[in-house]
């Protein structure tokens, strides 16, 4: 199904305004960060490609694979726990691998993040287990359709 592409003048006004804001940002970067445009571009383009060409297809493959083995009543909870695992692990990556930071400032990143990540993931999967169990019990209680 393809959407109808007809648009009124308000859309084209928004295109003009949005385009202007894009220009504002781009010209700011041109003035303020001209020597670093390549680095900005790499992270900008890299971000789009990583999301569209890596993360989303990966999610699809993992989803298709796991759906065959995970029972339907557990799937919504497992899916949410997988998302949480991916986001928390991605977020914590520089913390657990000790990238960046200030060596002489112990108030920055003061926690044990290996432990923190394990605790957070354990909490996530416990919650997911409880939610899946609740869904299983509910399904058993309902008369089969």
């Amino acid at each position: 199904m393809n959407g109808d592409d007809r648009r009124g003048p308000s859309f084209w006004l928004a295109v003009a305004f949005g385009g202007y804001l894009v220009w504002v940002g781009a010209s700011y970067l041109w003035d303020a960060q001209r020597e670093n445009l390549r680095s900005i571009g790499t992270w900008f383009v890299g971000g789009a490609l990583a999301l569209d060409l890596l993360l989303v297809p990966l999610a699809a493959v993992v989803g298709l694979g796991l759906r065959r083995v995970v029972p339907a009543w557990a799937w919504p909870a497992v899916r949410a726990a997988l998302l949480a695992t991916a986001v928390l692990a991605g977020y914590s990556w520089p913390l657990v691998t000790d990238r960046g930071g200030q060596p002489d400032n112990p108030t920055l990143r003061p926690r044990d993040y290996d432990r923190g990540l394990l605790v957070a993931l354990a909490a996530v999967w416990l919650l997911a287990g409880a939610a899946a169990l609740a869904s299983f019990v509910r399904q058993r209680a309902e008369p089969a359709a």
Binding site: G25, Y28, G101
Partner: peptide, 27 residues
């Protein structure tokens, strides 16, 4: 995290890209 695996100056790049993103969001 004060982790900077890039060459650009964070505050300026973050600010400039924010305008670009919001412009695209308006559309």
């Amino acid at each position: 995290f004060q982790f900077y695996p890039w060459d650009f100056f964070f505050t300026r790049a973050h600010y400039g890209v924010a305008w670009i993103t919001v412009g695209a969001l308006v559309v």
